[in-house]
Design a protein around this nucleic acid. Structure first.
Length: 371
DNA sequence: GAAAAGGACATAT
DNA sequence: ATATGTCCTTTTC
């Protein structure tokens, strides 16, 4: 089942890069008709996961149906709830509220994947036909009466590619969540605090009612051992959904384990998890490292912090409140704000880590030693 | 009014 | 002891 992640020509990374380079934000496109819906994509994902892992982790048709239910909310956040969330943040001062904003961007994968697939389908097909010149361009296949068998194969391969892309994206999003929450990807390793963080994250990501209390005192191990029914007992409204999401995390953790144990071939998914990751080094993350991490993930954070000149290490904080919240989340400092964050940045001046650029501009800083 | 700068003291590791 | 986190005053944009 490694194939779902590794077995295709296009590693998840390059897919992501091509997406990132798209001229306009591909995840903001309105839903297309006639292409895979996010439910379809999720079906493929969960389907492909269950193919290999189902027996072990017990992914069910039910999980699928639950994923489907998320669809409605996904459309909501994507299309224009960012602003209300920001307002809620500014006015609320509740620590919770910081998640909303976060999720609007970080969790958009459900939506963006579905909308990315049509965008990707064509370039992918083109790449294939370039590699195999004798094959007719896929785009024209209908007019030119391509043999049904060939067409089926092409279709199958596209599906595989989309599946692998989805899996790659899921792994990446889990990785991002882990960094943000400072938890391990494997639920089995979570302590009660980690479990609560994950719940908080997932609840806000999918607009679920708060159910943290129902799962208090539970470790990740406890959680993993619980059946869907037990989840429902603890949280009648969203226990099933939470269970389904935990399933995905469990699958991802298992895949990760398999990849690192298995063949030593460095493949897409392996890179995903072994990426130079300051959160794995044991030492607490430094603010400058954190900022750099955000900057290296423009498709997740490009709207709150971005490079003005990557070569020179000049970057701009576009949304100071958001960046501060992310930092607070990462460091477990609910009261973090830009005033404090910027004070910390200023401490870097004399250490020679960050400075103001030659032409000082508001919210613009410069790494003294660019990558 | 928000951001920048930097002092002073507190806190976590 | 280090790296912030917190709070605060003054200045600049």
């Amino acid at each position: 089942m490694k194939i779902a992640v590794n077995g295709v020509g296009i590693p998840p990374h390059s897919v992501t890069e091509s997406l990132t380079l798209a001229p306009s934000p591909w995840y903001q496109f309105p839903a297309h008709q006639g292409f895979a819906s996010e439910v379809d994509v999720m079906s493929n994902l969960v389907g492909s996961l269950s193919e290999g892992y189902g027996p072990r982790i017990g992914l069910t048709e039910n999980s699928l149906a639950l994923m489907e239910r998320n669809r409605g909310s996904g459309e909501q956040w994507d299309m224009g709830e960012t602003k209300p969330n920001v307002e809620a943040l500014e006015r609320g001062g509740l620590y919770f509220s910081c998640f909303d904003m976060l999720f609007t961007e970080d969790a958009a994968w459900l939506v963006k994947l579905s909308e990315a697939s049509p965008t990707l389908a064509l370039p992918m097909a083109r790449m294939e036909s370039r590699e195999e010149p004798e094959q007719c361009p896929v785009i024209d296949s209908q007019e030119q009466g391509l043999s049904p068998e060939l067409e089926r194969q092409v279709e199958e391969r596209s599906l595989e590619q989309v599946q692998s892309m989805v899996v790659g994206e899921v792994l990446k999003d889990i990785e991002t969540a882990c960094k943000l929450l400072n938890i391990t990807p494997d639920p089995m390793e979570w302590n009660t605090g980690n479990v609560q963080k994950w719940l908080l994250w997932t609840e806000h990501l999918y607009r679920l009612p708060h159910a943290g209390k129902a799962f208090q005192e539970l470790t990740g191990k406890d959680l993993c051992a619980m059946s869907e029914e037990e989840f429902r007992q603890r949280s009648p409204q969203c226990g099933d959904t939470l269970h389904a999401h935990l399933d995905i995390w469990k699958s991802a953790a298992w895949m990760k384990e398999r990849c690192s144990l298995g063949d030593s071939k460095t493949t897409g998914s392996e890179e995903l998890w072994s990426e130079a990751d300051s959160s794995c080094s044991g030492q607490p993350i430094h603010l400058w490292q954190f900022l750099r991490e955000l900057l290296l993930k423009p498709h997740n954070y490009g709207r709150c912090i971005r490079w003005l000149n990557k070569e020179k290490g000049i970057f701009k904080i576009e949304d100071s409140a958001h960046v501060a919240r992310l930092w607070g989340l990462r460091k477990n400092r609910p009261a973090m704000n830009y005033d404090k964050l910027s004070r910390s940045i200023r401490q870097y001046y004399k250490k020679g880590i960050i400075r103001k650029p030659d032409v000082s501009q508001r919210l613009v800083y410069q790494f003294v030693h660019p990558v």
